[in-house]
């Protein structure tokens, strides 16, 4: 894994992977959008509004997936001290936040015609909202310290504590929700999805993943440049100390 620790090697790898991801992203997005609008039928219950799903579900998957990625990268950084892992985690955070916001917004838009309300304190929506707060906390942590190493460490610990908490939150919110109100009819059992809807959904998930990958690589490259700049400015001020030990 440390093979990619070298920034230059990482840069070359990123430059090679990025175009592939761009092509993958473009193709799957085009395919997904075409299928979503023209290649799939309206739902027999929900009508045309079901097409929101093709944005909503991939975003929700990315929201959780990227938080998981962040936690994994943070663990890698803390345990194996891989120098790029902190950067990968940091780069994933804004992307995850964006997907989280999209999930909430599209969920709200979808909920209005379906449930007759913009917001419902149901288990899933609530836990996505809490996840947004966790993302905010993580990013705030990164920006709160003047010392990069300290910020990286604190943010990584928070991400790990957060991911454990996320599991508990998911569970507790579901539990709390069923305690207070019966599960929504639409959710009960979860209608099995038809093949004609599965293909556009799969394409959109692929597009979202490719996009997330692209943005993480880009974020890491920016981060690497920022680190290089900081190192330059610091070393100019104080070069590494040499020393002489005189034991008499």
């Amino acid at each position: 894994m440390h093979r990619f620790a070298n920034p230059a090697r990482f840069g070359r790898l990123a430059d090679r992977v990025s175009p592939v991801l761009w092509v993958l992203f473009g193709l799957s997005l085009a395919l997904g959008l075409y299928l979503a609008f023209f290649g799939s039928p309206p739902d027999y219950q929900q009508g045309q509004s079901v097409r929101i799903m093709y944005v909503h579900v991939p975003s929700a998957m990315m929201t959780t997936g990227l938080y998981g990625f962040m936690a994994l990268a943070s663990a890698t950084a803390l345990i194996w001290r891989h120098p790029l892992a902190h950067m990968a985690a940091r780069a994933a955070a804004p992307v995850g936040t964006a997907f989280c916001l999209i999930t909430l917004a599209t969920g709200s838009l979808w909920g209005r015609p379906m449930w007759g309300t913009w917001w419902e304190w149901d288990g899933r929506m609530t836990s996505v909202l809490i996840q947004l707060f966790l993302y905010f906390g993580y990013m705030a942590m990164w920006n709160a310290f003047s010392d990069r190493a300290r910020a990286a460490n604190a943010a990584a610990i928070l991400a790990l504590v957060g991911v454990g908490n996320l599991v508990i939150i998911r569970f507790s919110v579901e539990w709390w929700n069923t305690l207070h109100q019966p599960a929504s009819i639409l959710r009960a059992g979860g209608p099995t999805i038809d093949g004609s809807m599965l293909w556009p959904l799969a394409a959109m998930v692929l597009a979202a993943s490719a996009y997330a990958g692209l943005m993480i690589l880009k974020g890491m490259k920016i981060e690497l440049k920022a680190v290089r700049l900081e190192t330059l400015m610091e070393n100019q001020a104080a070069p590494t100390t040499s020393y002489r030990l005189d034991l008499g």
């Binding site: 040499s242 020393y243 002489r244 030990l245 005189d246 034991l247 008499g248």
Partner: peptide, 12 residues
């Protein structure tokens, strides 16, 4: 009468 560790000097 003490040993010294001089930081910021090239090793002798």
């Amino acid at each position: 009468g003490a040993k010294t560790l001089s930081l910021g000097e090239a090793a002798a």
